[in-house]
Amino acid sequence: MGSDKPLVDIQNLTFRRGDRVIYQDMSMQFARGKVTAIMGPSGIGKTTLLRLIGGQLKPDEGRILFEGEDIPRLSRSKLYRARQKMSMLFQSGALFSEMSVYDNVAFPIREHTKLPEEIIRLMVLMKLEAVGLRGARDLMPSELSGGMARRAALARSIALDPELVMYDEPFAGQDPISMGVIVRLIRSLNDALGLTSIVVSHDVDEVMSIADYVYVVADKRVIGHGTPEQLRQHESPLVQQFLRGEADGPVPFHFRAANYGDELMELTR
């Protein structure tokens, strides 16, 4: 971890959805200028965590500090100001379907600044060049492939040079080539723009290749954290099962069920 304070600091977070506990007393730190990954089996609410950081959901207990400010307790206008410093890449890209790629990238700039159109044009083309889509600026989102849509959304999310970019499953459903492109983009954008990145994913190999620090979340809490090297040496069998992708282990292959033998016996009766 860096010497200065982490950009995002989650302290003793508890979050429930209805009666179901999603997180129980969980703490995490995201260091400035680093790529931090959150990994874990699907269905444990990794996306929920990003929404908590973005202030779209409110935790039941605990604090979520962003640059020292407690996100859940901010007033609406302060929250909106804080959000201008963060951005999120949604799993689907979430491009505005009624606008061209160019207008999509220009959208946050136009909404939050009063810059003249020529400067906006320069900024947009710069961001599109960074993701390699400068030639696709006049296409509509429906004309893009999945990988291109995600890259266009990435260009949009860095349009205002945020401090924090959150990636929600950036590798899910991508072919190997566009996966490689996105892996490279996350790393190079992080280093070139001095961003802080949070990557939520369950693609072990990709995450281990780019992350500076990794949290493995399962069963409502952090079960292991460290640099990718430290994690590979981690003693927890749960972490090892996840990293190696073994079918059975501490996370059982079978969903909770009555004894198989008993159920078979019932049929014969």
């Binding site: 779209q56 959000r83 951005s87 949604f90 979430a94 505005f96 379907s97 946050p108 909404e111 939050h112």
Partner: peptide, 9 residues
């Protein structure tokens, strides 16, 4: 799209 708009403040 609505969610991402919200995240863009």
């Amino acid at each position: 799209q609505l969610s991402s708009m919200e995240m863009m403040a």
